[in-house]
Each structure stands twice: as structure tokens, then as C-alpha cells.
Design a protein around this nucleic acid. Structure first.
Lengths: 345, 345
DNA sequence: TTGAAAGCGGTACCAG
DNA sequence: CTGGTACCGCTTTCAA
């Protein structure tokens, strides 16, 4: 490269214009690039004299040298990056915590966790973009990734492809999050408490169908073969929508409702109470997620408590899959749903 | 590398074992690597015959070829990656939406957005890890990044370093999120409504000090030089903690409280009501964040509505900074806080 | 104990 | 229009 002569600069301490490389460090320390690499990586297979180490470290510090991860993993032929597409659905506190736990657990195992900015393109399209980064493992929340996508990822060197969603995908390690179980718990609970005309809230908010459909199906399944009925109740997340639903509550003639989650439950409960519907006498209400706010409502909200696998467990699973890439993909059900009975049902 | 002779494999269609490279594509198509590159990148500076293009595309498809992003950006000397450390504080719906918006806005400008797994190490330490990825821009939420960190990032080629937090950092483009304004709005509102003995909730939850301290300071500032008093009220996010606080409410002798945010407000309001404290007559309550749940409480919760800059604006700012890396860093105040007066104050 | 050199997967110049 | 080739920054033999 041609050195452009310095323009007369202000008397600042000669700011190095381009990014320092290991070659720059070597030059400054008066050693070869190889030696720099040995020293900075503490390579045990080779002994470097103490004075040399010193000089190298000194030079690196002085230049503010930071190794180039891409170059390193290009040479190494692999990286320790675990890629996790950011979920398409609005995340609640539950999922936030889960992500945080998982990230720190994987960090402890010396992986670099990266959340890839959300999938505009459809799953199998997106998989290509993820594959370009050559992650050692990919952890996909929600639906959207197909068998084609899994194949692309594996062909690009991903040693573990794990889905965390409603269905298994050919070739991937599947952590089945069956939201049917949530609806099933709620439905069974309501039936046990003598309710027979059960409404189920289905949020209109887009991105939530993935959860709401199976939850509804779970309720249906819970009362299949009994005399109970299940009624679908579309509901937007706003007061007007809730008020409209509450206004026709009497004619709907329901004695219970599973409100999708605690937030929708709060919304609907308020509207019902404003309408003079007595809870739980006339209508029982059950939410889901076991948020703090449920305990603060009056009557206290019955809810379905959800438990995702711990971040540590999942991290270990990923690690195992990375180390034994030959192992056939397994399927595990991971969503534990239990009813917390309070006063609204 | 030594080729290990194939063990007699099941009669599957010869699965390619290693990751296909552009050389493989070239071989299969019977052309050079250069030609493959031209075709797949639609390089306009060079004309490739239609039959050749066809053969290359065909070969790429057949092999399931996916380019190696690291190799590409190594050669190019730069990437289009915008790195955003995952925030250390628990994120609410407000921030979630903000992130999502920002990501899609940046995607539209053809940047790749990546959330880097949360900062275990302290800011300036973490900056080194981020720098290893050689992002073209870094967007840091919250506090924790110091001038040293900024320097490291810039030296590693980051053309834009933007902080989104409570204070400016030497060398970085600062989007000032001044939570003092939140407290100030709430304090002024309460004062205007005739309240003089103001309590301010300070969450015990760790990670929230960054927000709670300035909010408290803002209230203090709003009533400075008046006869009003400000009392700090530490509060854990659980019912027991709230009940304890409510039990000594009468002796605290407060006529108003700014409850940090809507969720803490709900928690405290419930405890106060259970204790028989009338709201707003005896004590006015103001929350913040303007969440749906505030509208559902009775009395309806007064709150401070917060507005962050739109994702599009921020994306454009980043883009501008990337294109004009010489420009001196600016500072902008970006948090708009306005009181939404309802029935609790 | 240290250095020279090969190459990881792409891109872009220059020659044919 | 296409191929040869020199890099990008780093690690890792192999020799000296």
C-alpha cells in the first residue's frame, strides 16, 4: 500500500489511522507474527522467553491491538458462535429471563451467543443468512424453520440445530413447547370445578397465533367427549375491544373463560366487572404465565404456571450436541404447565 | 489433509461431508473461482455469458453453497454488522418494541443487526470482545461503556459508536436518555395538584438503579426551593414488601407517591388499598411507562408517558454516522416524558 | 526459542 | 468473456 504523506497535523500524539494487526504488533516488538500469536494465545506447545513475552504484550497494549475474530475462525475452520434468531413474537418477561439465563450459561461454556436481528424473510430463506455466519450451533425459537433450512445450516457446518417450538423439524434436535398443555390444564381445571360452557380468548395481535391456536386446541381436547362446550373469543388488546366482548357476555352464556394469558385476563376481567358480571360466581376466569399482576387483582387470578427448561440445561444440551455431532436428533417435551388455583375460578 | 478412505457406507446419495466452498462450485461448473464470484455477486463491471451463469447457479444450488461471511468481510476489509449488546436490565415491552423497530429499520438499510450476548464483564472489558467482531457500528444501551471502550472500538474500525443512556461518553455519539425528566414530570404534576409530602419508590431489584436514581433526582429537582418534601421508599417487587411498606404508611405521613413505574404502582396501590388508604384522596399515586395495565386499575392510574426515538430515526442516524465517520460526535436528548393524568392523582 | 511460509474462503485486479 | 493470482489477518506446522 502506498503511504500517503502526512498532512501537517495538529500536534496530537500520532494517531494510528488504520486498524492494528498482529503484523504491526510484531514489527513494534521486533519479532515475527508467529511469536505474537504464540504469546497472545499462551500457546503451551511452545516456550517463549520472558523478555520476549513482555515486549509483545507491551507492543499489543500500546497499539490497542484486538484480534480479528473472523480471521481467526477462518483459519481455525470453526467458531464458537451460537446463533439465536430473535423471536418474531412479542416477548414477555418469562421469555426474556429465559434468554438471559441461556446466554450466561452458554458464556460459561465459552460460547459466544449472538441474537440475529429478526427474520424478515421466511424461515428457510432466513436460514441461508444465518448459515453465512457459520455458527457452530443454531437455536431457533418458534416455528418457521423447515427441513430445508435445517439442511442448509448443517451443510454449512452447524454441528447442532435446535428448535424450540411447537413442532419437530426433520433433522433438528427438537425441544417441543406444546402450548396445548397450557390450554389442557386450564380446560381440565375449569371442568373439574363444574364449569361446562367455556370461552377461550384468542388474541387478535399478530404473531401470537403460534401460541393461541394450540392453547385453544388444548382446551378442546381437555373436554372432548364430555358435555362441555368451547367457544372461541377473538379479542384485541385494547379496552374498546374488551368492552364490546363484555357487552354481549350475557348472551354468550358462558360460565368460564380461559383468557389466553394473565394480561388478557386482566383486560377481560376488568371489562366484565365493569359490566357487572360477578367473578367467579357467574364466570370463572383463568389466565396463564403466572405473572405478578395476577396476584394483585381482585379476585386474585387463577393462572397456569409455565416452566421452560433452565438455561443451564439447554446450554449443556447444546454443548453435548456440538461435541457429538453424529448423534441422532432427539425430541424432548419441555413445557411444564401447572394450574395455580386462586380466587377467580 | 489426509483423505480417509470411505468406509462402506449405506447406499445413500453420497452426502458431501465437508462444507462446500466457491472452489467446489467452480470445479463442478467447470469454471474458475473468479467467475463463480462474478456470477453469484452479479458483478456489473464484468460480463459473463448466459450459459456460464446458468452452469454456475446450477452448481451452487446442487451443492447447497452458502458464501462464508467471515471470509468475505475479511477480504473486503469491512462488514455491515451493527452490534448491539443485549441490555443488562430487565426489558419491558417498551424497550422490546424499540429494539424490534430498530432492527427492521436497519435491515432495510442493508445492515445486519446482531445482539451480542449480555455483558458479563464490565463495559470497557466487554468492548474488547465486541471489537473482535469488527462491527461497522456499535449501539450501546445503558451505562457501562467508558471512553476507553469507545477508543478500543473506534481503533478496531467501528465507524459509529452510539450510546443510548444516561450520560455522554467521550468520543461517542450520545443519545441522552434522561430519566430525570420522568421524575421531574411526575414531581411537578403532583406539586401542581397541591401535594407537598411526596414519596418516591426506589426498586430494590438490581439493574434498575440506572433508572431509579435519576428518576428520584428528577422529583427532588422538581420541588427544589418549595416547601415540599421528598421521601425515598425502597421497595422489593413482591407482595410482602409492599404490605410492609403499606403498614407504616400512616406514620410516613405522605400525601403522594411516584411509584417508579406502572408495575410498581400497581403493586403499591393494591397494598395501600388493602390497608384502607384512599386513593387519590389520602394519597395520590403516579406511575410511569403508560402501560395498558394502568388503564385497567381502579382508580385509573396517572402515569408518565415515555417516548423513545423511532427505530427509523435511529437507524438513519447510524447510517449517517457510518457514511461520514469524520463527523464530530453529537449529543441529543431523546426521551420525551409527558404526564397522562387519570384518576389516581 | 524463533522465523518463514502455507493456507482458511472470498474478491478484484490484470492479462490473455 | 474468463482465468490466474495476490492479497485480507490469523494460526500452525516445519526448519533453523
Amino acid at each position: 500500500m502506498v503511504q500517503i504523506p502526512n498532512t501537517p497535523a495538529p500536534a496530537s500524539p500520532a494517531p494510528p489511522r488504520s486498524v492494528p494487526t498482529s503484523a504491526d504488533v510484531a514489527r513494534l516488538a521486533g519479532v515475527s507474527r508467529a511469536t505474537v500469536s504464540y504469546v497472545l494465545n499462551n500457546t503451551s506447545a511452545v516456550r517463549i522467553s520472558e523478555p520476549t513475552r513482555r515486549r509483545v504484550h507491551e507492543a499489543a497494549r500500546e497499539l490497542g491491538y484486538v484480534p480479528h475474530a473472523a480471521a481467526r475462525s477462518l483459519r481455525a475452520g470453526h467458531s464458537r458462535m451460537v446463533l439465536m434468531p430473535a423471536p418474531a413474537f412479542p416477548v414477555g418477561p418469562l421469555y426474556s429471563r429465559f434468554i438471559t439465563d441461556l446466554q450466561s450459561a452458554l458464556s460459561r461454556l465459552d460460547y459466544t451467543v449472538v441474537q440475529y436481528g429478526t427474520a424478515q424473510p421466511h424461515g428457510d430463506e432466513a436460514a441461508r443468512a444465518w448459515a453465512e455466519l457459520r455458527p457452530v450451533a443454531v437455536l431457533v425459537p418458534g416455528a418457521g424453520l423447515g427441513p430445508r433450512g435445517v439442511a442448509v445450516l448443517k451443510r454449512s457446518g452447524a454441528r447442532a440445530v435446535v428448535t424450540l417450538g411447537p413442532e419437530t423439524v426433520e433433522g433438528a434436535y427438537a425441544l417441543l413447547v406444546e402450548h396445548e398443555a397450557v390450554g389442557h390444564s386450564a380446560g381440565a381445571h375449569l371442568y373439574d370445578r363444574g364449569r361446562r360452557r367455556i370461552g377461550v380468548v384468542v388474541p387478535r395481535q399478530s404473531g401470537l397465533e403460534v401460541f393461541s391456536a394450540p392453547r385453544l386446541a388444548g382446551v378442546r381436547q381437555a373436554v372432548r367427549g364430555t358435555d362441555a362446550t368451547v367457544t372461541e373469543l377473538p379479542l384485541g388488546y385494547d379496552e374498546a375491544s374488551a368492552a364490546r366482548l363484555a357487552a354481549r357476555w350475557r348472551e354468550l352464556d358462558l360460565d368460564a373463560v380461559f383468557a389466553y394469558n394473565d394480561e388478557y385476563a386482566m383486560l377481560l376481567m376488568r371489562a366484565l366487572q365493569d359490566e357487572g358480571v360477578r367473578i367467579p360466581e357467574e364466570t370463572a376466569v383463568v389466565g396463564a404465565d403466572d405473572l405478578m399482576l395476577g396476584r394483585l387483582l381482585r379476585p386474585r387470578l387463577s393462572t397456569v404456571h409455565l416452566e421452560l427448561p433452565s438455561g443451564r440445561e439447554l446450554a449443556e444440551l447444546v454443548d453435548r450436541a456440538v461435541r457429538a455431532p453424529g448423534a441422532p436428533p432427539e425430541t424432548h417435551k419441555v413445557l411444564r404447565a401447572t394450574v395455580v388455583h386462586r380466587d377467580s375460578s
